[in-house]
Amino acid sequence: MTRNSDQPAAVKNTVVSIAGWPVQRVFRLLEYPFSKIQKGVGIQGMPWIFLLPNLLFFGIFVVIPLFINFAFSFTGGTELFLSNRVYTGTEQYRFLLECETFGDPITCREDRFWKGLYNTFVFVFFQVSFLVLFSLITALILNREIRGRGFFRAVFFFPVLLSPVVVALIWKWILLRDGILNAFLVSIGMDKILFFVSPEWAMFWAVFVSIWAHMGFYTLILLAGLQAIQPDLYEAAEMDGTSKERVFWRITLPLLWPNLLVVVVLALIKGVQVFDEVFVLTGGGPGTATQFIVQYIYNTGFTEQVQDFGLASAASIVLGVILFVLTMLQLAVTRARDNG
């Protein structure tokens, strides 16, 4: 009996030793250069050596372009290379930020920038609020012992796997004048609705489609948080006869708070950066009703005959500042909570 039960373990060890052989060889090969490096930089310096590939990647593709972008925002003209561009000082920022009344974009010199900013805030407010709410409700339901739980988890996560362009095209076909939704409305005796002609409808669908596409991802984060809560707590509450509402407010929500915070911050940052889905779905229209800040940057830098890289860079720096403030806010909230 003992011998039989030992057999699988022996097989496992053999498999591990065979599979591990090349890994061991590689590590042995690396041992010599790494011990040399360690002698050179000391044990304290080794973390930097391991971080170096990532730091290089981040530096080349994020930090350096960030500085180039910053430099571009102080130049004008249409030349592509920085060395050929004309230094204009803070003119691009002055142009962007010049307004008679900041609450009314039409009074601003660059009205489309302000409309983009205003639309982005409206979108982020509704999208993040409802995204977090629906993700939480879905996660709570999928955390319960319901029939077909695995299937529903997959169903809710599936849209996350789709490309934003595919998502937008699918919904565009549903919402067009002769789309499926209007066909349904006509079949129940209603009139067709031109969803992309009304600013309110266009914004509604931009928010709706964005939530539909991303909810699965945030639901997954919250589900992981819910599953990490000790069942003993719920059992104790049940034994005490605590109501379900009280359990939710006193146990579930406080223990889920770190995950909720991550969801809110990620959704906020992704919301401010929204572009591809809405661009394909509404094209920014009607008029400028769903034209967000990133689309303004894209239009200014690429679609006009005069590709105004300087102005587009200045606008992207402003966007960067907004994202920075949001991130700092998140850090402050996290720290405040950690400190009790």
């Binding site: 031109l194 992309f196 002609v197 009607p286 008029g287 400028t288 034209q291």
Partner: peptide, 14 residues
Amino acid sequence: TKELWGSVSGSSYL
């Protein structure tokens, strides 16, 4: 119809 001109923004061709 506003659906054609109104349904996009900027100088996009449609």
